[in-house]
Design a protein around this nucleic acid. Sequence first.
DNA 1: CTCCTTATGTACCTCTGGGTTAATTTGTCA
DNA 2: TGACAAATTAACCCAGAGGTACATAAGGAG
Lengths: 231, 231
Amino acid sequence: MDKDTDTAGQKRKTTWKKDPAAVKENILTIATEEFAAHGLSGANINEIARKTATSKRMIYYYFGDKEGLYQHVLERVYSSLRNEEQMLNVADLAPIPALRRLTEATFDSHVNNPQFIRLVMIENIHNAEYVKKSKSIPKLNKAIIDKLTDVCERGKASGVLRVDADPLELHWMTSSASFYNVSNMATFSTSFGDSLYTEQGQKRLRQRVVDMVLGTVVIGYQPDTPSSNCA
Amino acid sequence: MDKDTDTAGQKRKTTWKKDPAAVKENILTIATEEFAAHGLSGANINEIARKTATSKRMIYYYFGDKEGLYQHVLERVYSSLRNEEQMLNVADLAPIPALRRLTEATFDSHVNNPQFIRLVMIENIHNAEYVKKSKSIPKLNKAIIDKLTDVCERGKASGVLRVDADPLELHWMTSSASFYNVSNMATFSTSFGDSLYTEQGQKRLRQRVVDMVLGTVVIGYQPDTPSSNCA
DNA sequence: CTCCTTATGTACCTCTGGGTTAATTTGTCA
DNA sequence: TGACAAATTAACCCAGAGGTACATAAGGAG
């Protein structure tokens, strides 16, 4: 991985170690940054190569072409986020706290993974072409729906959730707010100021998202901020 | 604008009319499609030129360079959508119906303007760089906030809205759902099936968005679909 | 009619960026 | 220890895309 920049710099006797795993990982890390920053067509292979500790040839050696690299980047970032989501255990919480917890966790995980958001935006610009091609991504999406399904069933059984509460709709509502919060920060704050993107603004928004989601499925839900305006 | 493809095709005596407005409009229409489809870096000037009724030279004549063209496209599509929004008059509706109406209108206008959505997505990938540069766009965003402010004030005065109802937050909530609905259709339906993107699914979602938004600000709000699951 | 500005078409230039070729080093197994 | 595959480097190729030079037609003013 190291170039031998000899002091004399004459013989160019390069010496290096074989370390395919590290090289691949290094390439993917840099490529993720670049694709997330500039998109598929906007990212530049020469630039990616330059930022890695290895050479352009290695990118083609391991990933075939630009699209292959992008595909790997996409699958890697998807699986990383979904695994993070899978960590969360709400099976031992009552339905309403569980739902609150899931919503907050989704909101937070989006905030903490802007690269994922950007790559999904880019995928949508490409009509999800590469997500569709992927064999690994479809499997990853079951976990969150399963959790919501469980919560809904328990909630309906105990009578605290409306009978028309739907796991997929819940996921859609939570995702839409959480995703937009990150994806459209730039245009939104440019157009309307950044008051919702200060630390306090985000705190309030996070609470509002919980209220929004719970409000649609919890019978007789009342937000816990009854009257006062702001701190 | 018309090329004179002479039958003999020898003398190439091209004949054309001066029509700058139409040429510009034609270029912008095609460019909007191309930028919306492929992004700033993904769109191809030669391809845009080929699809217009004029030549590449004209693009540079009127818009300077690729970025200039993109900037014009962006401003044009922004002003088109915001003008559409401005048409809507809710001043003579009671606060709650007005809020419902505004929410529904936002949802619908997003569905009906996928190119706008795609260009805003692209802008966000570029960190709103070109929106920030624009002189015309900032002015366009006041209208919707003004309307929401009016509704909030009336609603609070008459006691039907919570005192912490905030116009900007309301706009954020409505936008997030409406925007995500269109922007992430490709990845969402790929991952979770297209049940929310059928005609019925969209109808239900639209209602849910209204319930979500009103639920956070209307005192004692109850969705009007009390118990049954689906038709 | 002539001149001038605006508008337009054609052909071309340049360089970037995705991708490749060929040669070299590393490590391993007989 | 020598051969062989895997890993890596450096240098190169070239199509294509952004952008330009140049010539010329359209249309209006005087």
